[in-house]
Design a binder for these strands. Structure first.
Lengths: 135, 135
DNA sequence: CTTGACCTTCACATAGATGTCAAAGTTTAG
DNA sequence: CTAAACTTTGACATCTATGTGAAGGTCAAG
């Protein structure tokens, strides 16, 4: 698909799609006329990138992460140097920290809303999932 | 404590501590000479702020979140307008999305490292916590 | 053939968090 | 008293992701 469609389907401006490509986060073929051509899978890829960016990861780190999806067996041992492994271990710790931090805040917000007399605004999922101990 | 100590204990530059105050994220008393004076609790507060910032939240949202910690009962009903509740519900969804996204990436990285012959770089926690199905 | 909706690259501007430095007051050690 | 180590405010720079617009090529519909 061309960039316009990818943009429509993901809600991401074309400007950003080109930027992500420049940063090595997504790839595209070129048609004879120079237009970019994306595979169907680009939609999911872009959505993931957006999620990670909005979670505070930089394009550099995201490139790192994307670089190791789908790598297996022989390939894996070859491409994963000791040094890369250490970088990744550090990133792993950073990810855990972020997850913990966001989770605590999520619980705070959820609880606040439940107790606020405005629980109506909560999607059904929340009220059911959080059997808050009675006051 | 004064700003220098808070900075040393949190690893956050004084420049940033003043910025967080300007953004309404932390508060401080002033000594007779004009120096800022922070309570012990500021250390934890700053650490939380750092975590949230590194997770992609803006100071605006963080201010929102911090504004509702420790609010209870009567106070709560009064301060939580319908409108605020809706903002918070939206933030809650955004938080869930980020958590999901980061969690998926964390699992990818962890699994990658486990399979990479470089599991040594993993803190003990990981290997134990993730009983990965054997190949 | 022209118009409108695409696409290309390139450049410049903005916003938010952060770095860095300057000028000046305060406090403590020597 | 003076020097060193704090503190204050304020200005200006930087980085990253993003907005915006210009100048021009491509293509399908009329």
């Amino acid at each position: 698909m061309r960039i316009g469609e990818l943009s429509r389907r993901t809600g991401v401006p074309t400007r950003m799609l080109r930027y992500y490509e420049e940063q090595g986060l997504i790839a595209s073929e070129r048609r004879s006329n120079g237009y970019r051509d994306y595979p169907e899978s680009a939609v999911a890829a872009v959505e993931q990138i957006r999620g990670l960016l909005s979670s505070g990861l930089t394009t550099r780190v995201i490139r790192l992460l994307l670089g190791m999806e789908g790598v297996e067996g022989e390939e894996l041992a070859r491409t994963c140097s000791r040094n890369l492994a250490e970088s990744l271990a550090a990133e792993l710790d950073a990810l855990e920290a972020k997850i913990g931090c966001l989770t605590r805040s999520r619980d705070t917000v959820r609880e606040f809303l439940v107790r606020s007399r405005h629980a109506e605004v909560l999607g059904d999922a929340h009220v059911v999932l959080a059997p808050v101990a009675a006051d």
